[in-house]
Design a protein around this nucleic acid. Structure first.
Length: 537
DNA sequence: TTTTGAGTTGTTCGA
DNA sequence: GTCGAACAACTCAAA
C-alpha cells in the first residue's frame, strides 16, 4: 500500500491556456508494418567509412534501453551511438508538459542516463528547437543516421516529418520506428478504410491482428559517440519544483526509470492482478498497476507489459477474467492514441460538434477552485482531488467520479478539468487525458450516455464502503462513522462534534445539492440534443 | 445497399 | 429490500 504524502502543496503550478491552435498535417504514407523504418537505404555522401560514423538515437517519450527498436537497430550496426534528449520549449504547437509530468520526466532521464552509462553509452541533453538541434548535431558529428520512436501528437508528428525530409535531403538516413504503441494508428482501420470511433470494434479488430511482437532485449554494450558541445546538465533543465518542493516524498511513491517500472510491474503481477476485474474499482485497495506514468514516458513499453500479463495468465498467477480486463486497459491506451492520431485537436475541440452548444457555466471560478482544492463537500470527490494534489496520481474510479462532478454537477467545461489533470498528474498523457475527459463529458467518441451522471454519494458508498480511501486523504473526516462518512452534512450534530468535524469550518458543506445539480445537468444535455435547439439557458 | 445490433465504468423510480 | 424498466436518439461497424 502506498502511503500518502502529507505535505500540503502550494497553489497552481501552471495554468496553461487550452492547447495551441491545431496544426494541419499531412498523414505520412503507409509504413511496412513491422516497426522498421520504411526507408532503410544507406546514403553515402560524406567521406569516411560508414561504420565509423555515429548514429543518433533521439529519445523522447521512450526513456528506456530495453525494447527500444530505434536503439536496438542502431546498436546492431555497431556504430558509435549518440543518445540524445532535446529539452524543447521552442517548437510551436507542442504542448508544454505539466508540472507533475516534469518531475517524473526528470527522474526518467536520470535513470536512462545511468542505464546507458552502465553499457558504455552516454545520454547527452541539449536544449532548443528540436529540428534545428537535430540538424546541427547530425551535421557536426557527421552522423550516418538518426533514429527515433514515433509519437502521436500532431505538432510532434509534423516536426518529425519536417526533420525526416531535411535529414534525407542532407544525405542522412532518418528512421522512425513504432515502439510506444501496440498498433499502428494509420493502419488499423475499419473495413471502409476509416479510423475506429467505437472501442469494442477497435479492440476486436486489434485482437485479430495476431498479437503484439515480443519485446526486444536491451543492448548489452554500446560505443558512445564523441561528446557533443553545449550539452546541459539535467539539473539545469528546471524540471523539478524548487521552492516549495511539493514533490517531496514522491520518490517513495514512484521508483524511477526502467528498474522502477519493472518493480511496479512485478508488484502488480504478484499482488494486484489476481482479483483485478473487481478490485480495480476499489480505490482503497491496491489492485491497479500504477504503470501509467511509466508508459507515458516510455520507461516501460506496452509490449513488455502485454507479454508480462500474458505470461502471468499462462503461469496461473491470474484468471482469464482478470488478465483480460487488464489487457483491455492497455487496449484503451491504444484506442486513445488512435483517436488522437486521427483527431489532432482532441484536447481542444469537442469530438461531437453539438457539444459546442453546451451551456457551460462561465461564472464558476469559485466552484472550479473548490474542485481543484478538494473542497466540494463531497468526500469521495475531495479525497480524489487531494490524492491528486499530494501524490500526482488519482485512482481510476475516482477520476471518473471527480470528472463527472466537475462536468455535470458544476457544469464546468471539461477542458478546465483536462487542463488541471494535465498539470497535476504524473501520468498526464496527450492522448489518454483528453480522450477520457471527452468520454466522461459525453462529447467524445463512444461516449457515455448523457444520463449517466455519477451520484457521488452512492459511488462512495459502493466503491469505498468502509471509507478507507476517504479517511486516508481526508483526515479531518477520519473519525466519522462509516454510515455518515459519505454524507457528513446529514450526520447528527452530536456525531459531527464527537468526530471533531465542524461543517463549514474544517470541512465544507456541499457546494451544490446533488438532486438539483443532476436535474440541471439533464436539462442542459437535453438542450443540445434537440437538433434545432439553442442551449442558451 | 440496406438493415441490424450494439455501444467500459449509472441512477432513479415504481412495482 | 430487490428487481426491471426507463432514461434520447444516434452513429458506427459489420452482416
Amino acid at each position: 500500500m502506498i502511503a500518502p504524502v502529507r505535505e500540503p502543496l502550494p497553489g497552481p503550478k501552471i495554468l496553461p491556456g487550452f492547447g495551441a491552435p491545431p496544426v494541419k498535417l499531412s498523414l505520412s504514407p503507409a509504413r511496412n508494418g513491422h516497426g522498421m523504418p520504411k526507408d532503410d537505404r544507406m546514403k553515402e555522401t560524406r567521406s569516411g567509412k560508414s561504420a565509423d560514423r555515429p548514429v543518433v538515437v533521439w529519445f523522447r517519450d521512450d526513456l528506456r534501453i530495453a525494447d527500444h527498436p530505434a536503439l536496438h537497430h542502431a546498436a546492431e550496426q555497431g556504430a558509435p551511438i549518440i543518445a540524445l534528449y532535446v529539452h524543447d520549449e521552442k517548437t510551436e504547437g507542442i504542448r508544454a508538459k505539466g508540472a507533475a509530468q516534469k518531475w517524473f520526466l526528470h527522474h526518467c532521464l536520470s535513470a536512462l542516463a545511468a542505464k546507458l552509462d552502465a553499457i558504455g553509452g552516454r545520454l547527452d541533453i541539449l536544449t532548443g528547437a528540436s529540428e534545428a538541434v537535430l540538424k546541427r548535431v547530425a551535421g557536426a558529428t557527421g552522423a550516418r543516421a538518426v533514429y527515433w520512436l514515433r509519437r502521436t501528437e500532431a505538432a510532434e508528428r509534423e516536426l518529425d516529418r519536417k526533420l525526416k525530409t531535411a535529414l534525407r535531403a542532407a544525405g542522412i538516413e532518418a528512421g522512425s520506428f513504432n515502439g510506444n504503441l501496440l498498433h499502428e494508428p494509420a493502419r488499423l482501420l475499419t473495413q471502409s478504410g476509416g479510423p475506429y470511433r467505437v472501442y469494442t470494434p477497435f479492440w476486436r479488430a486489434f485482437c485479430n491482428t495476431g498479437g503484439p511482437r515480443l519485446p526486444l532485449p536491451a543492448p548489452k554494450r554500446l560505443t558512445a559517440g564523441e561528446a557533443l558541445k553545449d550539452t546541459v546538465a539535467l539539473a539545469d533543465l528546471g524540471l523539478l519544483p524548487a521552492r516549495p518542493d511539493w514533490a517531496r516524498g514522491w520518490d517513495a511513491l514512484w521508483p524511477v526509470g526502467e528498474d522502477g517500472a519493472a518493480r511496479m510491474l512485478s508488484r502488480f503481477l504478484d499482488g494486484g492482478l489476481q482479483g483485478y476485474a473487481e478490485g480495480r474499482d476499489l480505490p482503497a485497495k491496491d489492485h491497479v498497476s500504477r504503470l501509467s506514468p511509466y508508459l507515458r514516458f516510455g520507461a516501460i513499453s506496452p509490449y513488455q507489459v502485454w507479454h508480462a500479463a500474458r505470461h502471468a495468465l499462462t503461469a496461473g498467477m491470474a484468471g482469464e477474467g482478470d488478465a483480460g480486463k487488464f489487457l483491455q486497459e492497455l487496449g484503451w491506451r491504444e484506442f486513445c492514441h488512435h483517436l488522437l492520431f486521427h483527431h489532432p485537436d482532441l484536447a481542444s475541440r469537442n469530438f461531437q460538434e453539438k457539444f459546442d452548444r453546451f451551456a457551460w457555466r462561465d461564472d464558476a471560478a469559485a466552484d472550479l477552485e473548490c474542485w481543484r482544492r478538494g473542497r466540494t463537500g463531497y468526500p469521495i470527490v475531495d479525497a480524489g482531488m487531494r490524492e491528486l494534489w499530494r501524490t500526482g496520481y488519482m485512482h481510476n474510479r475516482v477520476r471518473m467520479i471527480a470528472a463527472s462532478f466537475l462536468i455535470k454537477h458544476l457544469r464546468i467545461d471539461w477542458r478546465e478539468g483536462e487542463t488541471w489533470f494535465w498539470d497535476t498528474l504524473v501520468d498526464g498523457d496527450p492522448a489518454s487525458n483528453p480522450a477520457s475527459w471527452q468520454w466522461v463529458a459525453g462529447s467524445g467518441a463512444d461516449a457515455a450516455p448523457y444520463f449517466r451522471i455519477f451520484n457521488p454519494i452512492l459511488q462512495g458508498e459502493k466503491f469505498d464502503p468502509h471509507g478507507a480511501y476517504i479517511r486516508r486523504h481526508l483526515p479531518e473526516l477520519a473519525e466519522l462513522p462509516d454510515r455518515h462518512l459519505h454524507r457528513p452534512w446529514e450526520a447528527p450534530k452530536e456525531v459531527l462534534a464527537g468526530a471533531g468535524v465542524a461543517l463549514g469550518q474544517n470541512y465544507p458543506r456541499p457546494i451544490v445539492d446533488h438532486a438539483r445539480a443532476r436535474a440541471r445537468a439533464l436539462a442542459a444535455f437535453k438542450a443540445i440534443g434537440d437538433a434545432t435547439g439553442t442551449a442558451d439557458g
